[in-house]
Nucleic acid binder design. Structure first.
Lengths: 111, 111
DNA sequence: CGTGTAAGGAATTCTGACACG
DNA sequence: CGTGTAAGGAATTCTGACACG
């Protein structure tokens, strides 16, 4: 179920300097997109930002949108819509699995 | 072929502070194991070490071995042997693929 | 052999502000 | 609105060495 790979992708482990290199964006831009709520890095206890690979991917997407002239506000809405879809899809799968278990249970018990 | 996940795993992106947190080892230990050639972090242009998730995994393995009383020299040999095996396996696959292409080629040309 | 620590310096990151527009 | 920059401070990392054993 590739649990580990997903954890690598979402684990917040990089500081802003590497994200800067990976994305080609300036620190200013990266911090600004955070202020506009487009991504949510974690912080160390002393306040240093930590990013994940998925944050890096998201930043690339954001950069593309910005270049197309889309405003951060719009981008935020798009991201929110995407989150919503994913939540629905996840729940769908979850429900289907649960339903399957229930079916198996009742059939095996011969109700 | 999960090219991307592998890239996340092997990409050197973390500084020693996070590796320290992730592994529970001290900076001293992490740098020492490097000196003993057990892992090979990259460096930024200014000399800061950068580690990958696979380095973190390797450090966990190393820590286990050390606890078992194995010396760094032994651990290095074990790691070398493991690399050797992987190289062989990769070549095997590569050769098999090449052979398959050759076969396809000659059969289709009807020699 | 493997690890802790204090020392001094260099590189990194942070925030709030001035600037342009 | 989105981004650059200089400013000052705080946190991080680096190396070589002394120490114990």
């Amino acid at each position: 179920m590739k649990t580990e790979e997903a954890s690598y992708r979402d684990k917040k482990v990089m500081s802003i300097g590497i994200v800067k290199e990976l994305t080609g964006l300036s620190e200013r831009q990266i911090r600004y997109y955070e202020k506009r709520q487009l991504l949510f890095p974690e912080r160390t206890s002393t306040g240093i930002r930590k990013y994940s690979f998925s944050d890096v991917e998201r930043l690339m997407d954001i950069a593309d949108k910005i270049e197309e002239g889309v405003q951060t506000k719009e981008i935020r809405h798009e991201l929110a819509r995407r989150e919503e879809k994913n939540r629905n899809k996840t729940n769908e799968i979850r429900n289907r699995m649960l339903q399957g278990q229930l079916n198996a249970h009742f059939h095996s018990r011969n109700y």
